[in-house]
C-alpha cells in the first residue's frame, strides 16, 4: 500500500513539473504574428492623395501612427465591404489603441471613384475611416511600390467593368515603412492582436 502511494506521489510531482515547463514554454515564447512580416521594413515613398472635399492626405503627416492600407473600389459589392467590416471590428477590438491606427482605403478605380465617393463609402463603416482617391499618375506609383495589382476586367456584367485587385491589407509602421501584410480573410481577432503587439513594441 505504501509503495502504491509513493508511486502516486511521484506521478503527481512529475505532472506538476511538466505543467510548469509547459506554462513556461507557452508564456515566454515570443509573440508570433499572424500577418506576413516584412523584415527589414520597406520604406514607402511619401505620397499625397485626396480625401473628402478634396482635402489632401499626406502619408508623412501620419508619422507616429500605424497606417492600415486597403485597396478596393466602391462598385465592389463583396470583397471590399467584407474588408471594411473587418476594419470596423478591428477598430472596436482595439479600444483606446484604435486612436493610434489610421484605417485607410485607397481606390483601385480612380476613373469612377472620386475622393468624396470613397470617403462617403468608408465612413459608412466608421466615421474615423479615411477614403482616398487621386489621379492615376498619383496612384500608380503607390500601387507599384507596394506590389498592388490592379486591372480592369470586362465581365459582361451590367455594372460595366469590374476591377481585379490585390485584396491584402498593408500595415505601415509609425515611421511610414511597410512592416506587414494581412492576406484577405485574416480574422479581426488576429489583426487586432498583431496591431496591439506592434503598438506595444513601438512603445519600448
Amino acid at each position: 500500500m505504501i509503495k502504491k502511494n509513493q508511486y502516486f506521489l511521484l506521478f503527481i510531482m512529475t505532472a506538476v513539473i511538466a505543467l510548469g515547463v509547459l506554462v513556461e514554454v507557452v508564456f515566454r515564447r515570443p509573440y508570433s504574428f499572424h500577418g506576413t512580416v516584412i523584415n527589414p521594413p520597406l520604406p514607402v515613398t511619401d505620397f499625397t492623395l485626396q480625401t473628402a472635399n478634396n482635402e489632401a492626405f499626406r502619408l508623412s503627416d501620419q508619422k507616429g501612427k500605424i497606417v492600415l492600407l486597403f485597396f478596393g473600389y466602391t462598385s465592389c459589392p463583396d470583397v471590399c465591404p467584407v474588408t471594411l467590416a473587418t476594419f470596423k471590428q478591428v477598430y472596436d477590438n482595439l479600444g483606446e489603441d484604435s486612436q493610434k491606427v489610421r484605417f485607410v482605403m485607397i481606390t483601385a478605380d480612380p476613373d469612377r471613384d472620386t475622393p468624396d465617393k470613397v470617403s462617403e463609402y468608408v465612413a459608412r463603416f466608421s466615421p474615423e475611416f479615411i477614403g482616398l482617391s487621386g489621379n492615376r499618375s498619383a496612384l500608380e506609383p503607390i500601387w507599384k511600390q507596394l506590389g498592388v495589382f490592379v486591372e480592369k476586367q470586362d465581365s459582361g456584367s451590367a455594372a460595366g467593368y469590374l476591377v481585379s485587385h490585390t485584396s491584402s491589407v498593408y500595415v505601415l509602421d509609425p515611421n511610414g515603412s511597410l512592416l506587414m501584410t494581412f492576406p484577405y480573410g485574416t480574422t479581426e481577432i488576429d489583426m487586432a492582436n498583431d496591431l496591439a503587439q506592434l503598438l506595444k513594441q513601438s512603445k519600448q
Binding site: D78, F149, S157, L162, S164, S168
Partner: peptide
C-alpha cells in the same frame, strides 16, 4: 436594382481578388 447577377469572388495565389459572372 437595374440588374441582378450571380458572381463568384476568387482569389489567386498572389492575393489578387476578381469577380466572375
Amino acid at each position: 436594382a437595374s440588374a441582378t447577377e450571380v458572381h463568384m469572388s476568387m482569389g489567386d495565389a498572389n492575393g489578387v481578388m476578381s469577380m466572375q459572372m
